[in-house]
């Protein structure tokens, strides 16, 4: 599968919310989209392009904005595809992919706590790797690992 094949399927579904499909070494391509069309894109990628397996969700802090990226695998094409969208740092949220791919659940929890990107309508947005009530987002560039942090750990009572 080539970037052109992705464009051909995705462009009619997303319209102007598809910002472009670039070539990416070792992958079918890198799809850049506006976050408003996130759910439409996920469904199209899973159902029309047969990328049934979501492998990874991650976030990158570019200081002035943040990027959310998704990696999905297609068994028929035997290829990965990279989806990415930019969100403003002051209003970092995007629709959850876990309604389309249940495997996004934990990846989004991790991205939420570490990169401070909220996933709307996520079924279970709790801390995963950091303790409950941990108010820091370690993977932001503004988080310096050499400075002490004040931390109050809450125990989760059963």
């Amino acid at each position: 599968m080539q970037p052109d094949d992705l464009t051909r399927v995705l462009a009619p579904k997303l319209g102007e919310n598809l910002l472009g499909v670039e070539a990416f070494e070792g992958m079918a391509g890198r799809v850049r989209f506006r976050r408003e069309a996130a759910l439409d894109l996920f469904r199209a990628v899973r159902d029309d392009l047969s990328f049934a397996h979501l492998s990874m969700v991650g976030g990158i802090d570019w200081v002035d904005h943040r990027e959310v990226f998704y990696v999905a695998w297609s068994d028929s094409a035997r290829q990965y595809v990279l989806l990415s969208t930019d969100v403003p740092a002051t209003d970092a949220h995007v629709e959850t992919a876990s309604a389309v791919w249940p495997s996004a659940n934990w990846h989004e929890r991790e991205t939420w706590e570490l990169v401070d990107i909220t996933f709307d309508h996520h079924p279970d947005l709790r801390h995963l790797l950091t303790p409950d009530g941990y108010a820091f987002h370690p993977l932001l560039r503004s988080f310096k690992i050499h400075e002490p942090e004040e931390l109050e750990v809450k125990t989760r009572h059963v």
């Binding site: 492998s55 990874m56 991650g58 990158i60 802090d61 990226f69 990696v71 495997s103 659940n105 934990w106 990846h107 993977l139």
Partner: peptide, 26 residues
């Protein structure tokens, strides 16, 4: 899986790893 972003310095700008057991346990 690993995703490494090189922004032209000596350090990787961002490194993201996908652990298979992370997904298997989820």
């Amino acid at each position: 899986q690993a995703y490494v972003v090189n922004e032209g310095t000596e350090h990787p700008y961002r490194v993201k790893f996908r652990s298979p057991i992370f997904a298997n346990l989820s």
